[in-house]
């Protein structure tokens, strides 16, 4: 299952096209499910390659187009970069001396050196009147988190909410708003499944606590399940294990909450 992405960089924009190029590379690497470091490395390597093309192959004047094709598959991303400038021979680029003194440092060659270190494989060819550079990067494919908080109505009108990844200052508002919406609709029986939550900040804790209070005030309940040990230790530290009912699994939580709801009627 391979996806092919293409970007044609118009030469007349010169170095101004670099941000577009790095964004293209980062998006392709993310689509290939590479880890965050590998995504960063792809951005840098493609940037360095295109910067070199503009500077050396096209000599910064009458810069021609650059064609970037990216072959994306889970766990690997291959970039093919074609230009029609002067033939490039990587063997003629002096290898920068690592640990060279300041006088000996020559800025040229750093880009090529970085590309070779950042990517798993780097190959140059000169064919059909153009330079073709092929660079590949692989990493263990990363799990894709769901794009948003999942909300589901369960039997007994219990509402199941599944946040994901990190609940910090930037992501907690989404959870906060989801909870507020439910409470405003009079849904006071809420189960928050924390299975996919790897981190919670004070903002995330606050969102849960204020929803818990509102549910409790309205003769309902907000319970939690599947909390991972790191997140649980945060709950313990702030004393939240005293407030929240925490269930080991979604099923256990749903049946306990159903019984509790029936007995309250």
């Amino acid at each position: 299952m391979q996806e092919i992405r293409q970007l044609t960089v118009l030469g007349r924009y010169g170095y101004d096209s670099i941000p577009t190029i790095t964004q293209f590379a980062a998006e392709a690497a993310k689509a290939a499910l590479l880890d965050q470091d590998a995504v960063f490395h792809c951005q840098m390597a493609v940037d360095e390659a295109c910067t070199n093309i503009i500077e050396h192959a096209y000599g910064e004047k009458n810069v021609g187009n650059i064609e970037i094709t990216c072959f994306v598959e889970p766990g690997s991303c291959t970039f093919q970069i074609i230009d029609h400038g002067k033939p490039f021979d990587p063997d003629k680029v002096p290898v920068p001396k690592i640990g060279a003194s300041l006088q000996d440092i020559r800025p040229g060659g750093i880009g090529l050196h970085l590309m070779r270190h950042l990517m798993d494989d780097v190959q140059f060819e000169f064919a059909q009147g153009g330079n073709k550079l092929t660079m590949k990067k692989s990493s263990a494919p990363q799990a894709t988190p769901p794009q948003s908080i999942q909300i589901q109505q369960m039997p007994q009108d219990i509402w199941l909410i599944q946040p994901y990844d990190r609940l910090d200052a930037t992501t907690a508002p989404e959870l906060e708003n989801t909870l507020i919406d439910l409470l405003q609709q009079g849904r006071f029986w809420i189960l928050v499944d924390m299975a996919q939550v790897s981190y919670i900040s004070s903002r995330g804790l606050k969102a849960l606590a204020s929803a818990w209070r509102q549910a409790d005030n309205n003769n309902g309940a907000l319970a939690l399940c599947n909390i991972n040990p790191q997140v649980l230790s945060v709950f313990e530290t702030v004393g939240f294990t005293q407030i929240f009912t925490i269930h080991p699994s979604q099923n256990a939580a749903l049946s306990a909450m159903s019984e509790q709801k029936i007995s309250k009627k």
């Binding site: 790095t22 960063f40 951005q43 840098m44 360095e48 910067t51 300041l102 440092i105 800025p107 750093i110």
Partner: peptide
């Protein structure tokens, strides 16, 4: 959050001048 060889070159150039 991002620094490529273009930026490094400027830093090295300035370092050479002040040294």
């Amino acid at each position: 959050d991002y620094l490529s060889s273009g930026g490094l070159r400027e830093l090295v150039g300035a370092l050479k001048r002040v040294k």
